[in-house]
Computed example of a mutant assay.
Amino acid sequence: MVTGGASGLGLATARMMRAAGATVVILDIGAERTAEAAASNGLHGLALDVSDDAAAEACFAEIEAQHGPVSILVCCAGIATPGSVVRRGEPMDLAEFQRVLDVNLMGSLNCIRCAVPQMIRRGRAGPEGAEAGTIVLTASIAAFDGQVGQAAYAASKGGIAGMVLPLARELGEHAIRIAAIAPGVFRTPMTEGLPEKSRDVVFAAVPPFPKRAGTPEDFADAVGFIIGNPMINGETIRLDGGLRMPARL
């Protein structure tokens, strides 16, 4: 299963997994765009707002009934609403900050809590000592190098990075691994859809090498590496070409 799978990092990851022979279900907000992405790429698709707990439970139950228990969960759903905490001397609308946390952080945890019981059931039914499941989350270098105007986004991604190790310790007894990828500057619909000023700031930063923004395929390659290597667990891997973001550009 891949959340945010109808475009960008999620769709590239879903394509990679499909090419490797997996049965892949993509989850994304918007039924029409999700169905279109699934149909054109040989995937299964369901519409889901990852911040909706009841909808997520129903969605995961439907998927298990149709395809069996989840073995791999990749969480790519995310939003990046930029904005200062104080604007022209007035406090920001707290709902804007909350929505970023709800989608990026709580949305990931929401899907994890729904996937893990299925992975546990899968592990119990499989051979002793076999891996029951793998979870890959999407953090960001903003978790470590957050810029001015990124407080909400950095907080959400810092939460992702912060929960990986305790979850790995908790889920290890069930033979489930979890790791996160922290991309640098990547060209995705989310970054391309930022306001012009914010977009210019983001794409002005390039790593020492390669001197380009990352691609969704770069991210998908990293996901494939994590899935295939059983020793990667409890870690957040920076995927940024050595980029360290300044406070502002």
Rank of each mutant, 00 (worst) to 15 (best):
residue 101 L to Y: 09
residue 183 P to I: 03
residue 197 K to M: 13
residue 85 V to K: 00
residue 191 T to K: 03
residue 205 A to C: 11
residue 183 P to F: 12
residue 218 D to R: 08
residue 82 P to H: 13
residue 223 V to S: 11
residue 149 G to L: 01
residue 119 M to F: 04
residue 5 G to A: 07
residue 79 I to Y: 03
residue 122 R to S: 12
residue 221 D to H: 11
residue 46 L to S: 09
residue 39 A to K: 13
residue 73 L to D: 05
residue 7 S to A: 15
residue 61 A to D: 15
residue 183 P to L: 06
residue 159 G to A: 04
residue 192 E to W: 03
residue 178 I to Y: 06
residue 108 S to M: 07
residue 136 V to G: 02
residue 150 Q to F: 03
residue 72 I to G: 00
residue 214 G to C: 05
residue 66 Q to W: 01
residue 90 E to K: 15
residue 121 R to N: 11
residue 190 M to R: 07
residue 240 D to K: 00
residue 79 I to G: 04
residue 151 A to E: 05
residue 202 V to W: 08
residue 222 A to V: 14
residue 215 T to L: 13
residue 234 G to H: 02
residue 88 R to E: 15
residue 22 A to E: 10
residue 177 R to M: 08
residue 4 G to W: 08
residue 109 L to W: 12
residue 53 D to E: 15
residue 3 T to N: 00
residue 68 G to L: 10
residue 101 L to G: 07
residue 80 A to Q: 11
residue 124 R to E: 15
residue 101 L to A: 04
residue 116 V to N: 07
residue 168 A to V: 03
residue 68 G to R: 10
residue 102 D to H: 10
residue 39 A to Q: 11
residue 219 F to P: 01
residue 193 G to W: 04
residue 55 A to F: 07
residue 236 T to Y: 06
residue 230 P to Y: 04
residue 196 E to H: 01
residue 39 A to G: 10
residue 4 G to I: 01
residue 209 F to E: 14
residue 164 V to W: 05
residue 58 A to W: 00
residue 37 A to S: 14
residue 131 E to L: 09
residue 24 V to Y: 13
residue 234 G to I: 08
residue 213 A to P: 10
residue 78 G to H: 02
residue 120 I to S: 06
residue 136 V to N: 09
residue 49 D to W: 01
residue 121 R to D: 01
residue 229 N to I: 06
residue 85 V to D: 04
residue 100 V to E: 00
residue 91 P to Q: 13
residue 207 P to V: 02
residue 26 I to T: 10
residue 30 G to P: 09
residue 101 L to D: 04
residue 237 I to P: 03
residue 247 A to Q: 04
residue 224 G to K: 08
residue 105 L to P: 02
residue 58 A to T: 06
residue 224 G to M: 06
residue 131 E to V: 04
residue 206 V to T: 10
residue 6 A to K: 08
residue 46 L to F: 14
residue 41 N to E: 15
residue 32 E to Y: 00
residue 110 N to S: 09
residue 144 F to G: 00
residue 67 H to M: 07
residue 181 I to A: 09
residue 16 M to A: 15
residue 141 I to N: 01
residue 163 M to Y: 13
residue 55 A to N: 11
residue 41 N to K: 13
residue 221 D to Q: 11
residue 9 L to S: 05
residue 57 E to Q: 15
residue 144 F to I: 02
residue 181 I to N: 08
residue 31 A to L: 14
residue 137 L to F: 06
residue 139 A to S: 15
residue 220 A to N: 10
residue 105 L to T: 14
residue 127 P to W: 00
residue 49 D to H: 13
residue 152 A to N: 08
residue 28 D to H: 07
